[in-house]
Design a protein around this nucleic acid. Structure first.
Lengths: 342, 342
DNA sequence: CTTCCATATTACAGCGCTGTAAATTCACAA
DNA sequence: TTGTGAATTTACAGCGCTGTAATATGGAAG
């Protein structure tokens, strides 16, 4: 068992393979009698179509890949869930591919050294430059996610990072904070993501007539809560004073919460904090976390729309789509009702 | 481009397809000169082998599936990362499959309606009964994870849940707690996982000469922090008193932390709390969370060992393997040093 | 300068399936 | 009864690759 082939069913039912294939695919021009006869043979034999054979014949696997640095990061795993569900609604299954945020891993994704497995790829690069992405020969349809500067030839979906960072910063300003820090950008080789967020942060400060203070930039060794704890703790140790903190992402914010509480600083009373991503944990931290919530559902659907068009042969220039985000005001920086910015 | 086939390379290099194939696979009996010549043709044409063709010919895809309820649950996403890395070391790639914890989704996994895509499946069932799993025709090698009662015919890897629950409970008893609750088992249709954990909890209480109090069992609607918050809050509302809480998993524990803090109860002073799974967030909660840490690395390796044997044709009875766990004492229930229990 | 053997290379079939085009069947009208 | 077109069903080739078995090559031995 497990070795039943189309031909076996065909023999059993006394028909041709193609007729069986037609029944399997609900091809309309099959008589009822025939359909029943074949279906019975299928059931009796426990036949299961082999995707590989089908793929080889049709050129499609019904598989998409979603590639990013690390599934165990909540933003990615929650995104994966949403994309996976959306893909399933369109009849695709999702293969998750991790790059570990390394150049090597990302190169493997775009060069797709093993072709033919997936019909398309949704890829959130961490370190690869846009020019390098563009250079790679692109056998398989590709849509980029995230803030990296996408090459003009490739489709791309993102939120307006600078605007969102500005919204978070402005939110803190509206709470009366004046010494607002930025936490969690990479120490060296600042990523495009962090750069855009820093830009929005700086812009909002300047809009408010404040001069950004370089001391208030707290880089973090890696994008983890642990490194954020270290960054904030050492800043406090060296006597830095701040009353607001715009964090690069929720993990950094959670690290910040922890570090502040260890020093006995109250959030939001002493320091108001904002996160970024709206990972589910942000509703359960103490205090709950004010955060930038990208419209991930729309992100997923948009990316899949673009990808499906590519799969179906669309061959134009890269399209660039911006999806919405929301600033969710919660305990760590309360005050304004949720603000929708496009 | 993207349409380079083995035959194209063969023509270009002026050799047979098989020779190209041999070069691609580092088959030993190929002369250096030939290897170079073919390799140049490969490079010039940008040839990428097509996995599907290969699979059809060899019967292997190099893909494994990891199936569980929901990637966005931290335990699963962190497990996925570990299994994925371990699989990569063995030359496999990992396909993540979500069942949403529904019977329907789980049936789809075991009946593998589309055969041939993956070489094997690692599956953590949530609701499917062992008999039903056993009944399903099993074309593809399968290894079960987790606490469900595994059918004797199928390989299975787990930790000793009752022992771990007893360890957590005993840890609280050693801290002098006497009114210890259990939080987070399913309200109806208690899962096998919860049952075993409840059993260990009860056993530890009885060992200590205490009579389990049914009021101290706080079921939760679903396995989420949100529902845990509700469960704990309403227990406190109805005046329930407890000084220790063994939680079914870390998410429940995080919800408990939140609910207790909202009521102004101190952790661990008023209530000591233990979690389960050691998700990374438990190091950053306030207070940090004492938790049961399954040896997931060993879990992953063991599961892959068993699976590879099956893939390579092993056909005996189901093997059952127990992997270690550790009780990590942190702030929410401090005291004893880490205790290793097998 | 043969002969022989080990090593390098090739021809060919077939993995399981589907698209195309051709063949068959059927219902109904002439 | 026969013709006609529409509705079903079938034959066949081929998707890209690899295993097997057969063939070619080249150097050492005779």
């Amino acid at each position: 068992m497990g070795k039943v082939r189309l031909q076996d069913v065909a023999s059993r039912a006394g028909v041709s393979m193609k007729t069986v294939s037609n029944v399997v695919h609900d091809y309309p021009h099959v008589s009822e009698a025939m359909r029943h006869r074949v279906q019975r043979a299928i059931d009796e034999l426990g036949y299961r179509p082999n995707v590989l054979g089908r793929r080889l014949a049709t050129g499609r696997t019904g598989l998409l890949a979603l590639a990013f640095a690390d599934v165990s990061l909540p933003y990615f795993s929650e995104l994966a869930r949403i994309v996976s569900a959306a893909a399933a609604r369109r009849g695709y299954r999702l293969l998750l591919e991790q790059t570990d945020g390394t150049l090597e891993g990302e190169r493997a994704v775009v060069s797709s050294s093993e072709a033919g497995l997936v019909d398309g790829v949704i890829f959130q690069p961490s370190v690869m430059s846009s020019t390098e992405i563009a250079q790679h020969r692109n056998d398989v349809p590709l849509v980029l996610l995230g803030e990296g500067p996408a090459p003009v030839t490739v489709d791309h979906v993102m939120i307006d990072n600078a605007a969102a960072a500005a919204a978070a910063t402005t939110h803190l300003l509206n709470l009366g904070r004046r010494r607002i820090g930025f936490l969690g950008h990479e120490e060296q080789r600042t990523s495009a993501t962090s750069k855009q967020r820093l830009r929005g942060y700086q812009h909002a400060l300047e809009e408010a007539g404040l001069t950004p203070d370089l001391d208030l930039l707290l880089p973090s060794k890696a994008v983890t809560s642990a490194d954020a704890v270290v960054a904030v703790s050492s800043a406090l140790d060296r006597g830095l004073h701040f009353d607001g903190l715009v964090c690069r992402d929720d993990l950094a914010a959670i690290g910040a919460l922890r570090a502040l509480q260890e020093r006995g600083l109250g959030v939001p009373d002493d320091v108001a904090v904002t996160g970024w991503d709206n990972i589910s944990m942000t509703s359960f931290t103490h205090p709950t976390l004010t955060t930038i919530a990208p419209d991930t559902l729309s992100l997923a659907e948009t990316a899949l729309d673009l990808l499906e068009e590519r799969i179906n042969g669309h061959d134009g220039m890269g399209r660039h789509r911006i999806v919405d985000f929301t600033l969710l005001a919660r305990e760590s920086a309360p005050g304004l009702p949720a603000v929708l910015v496009s």
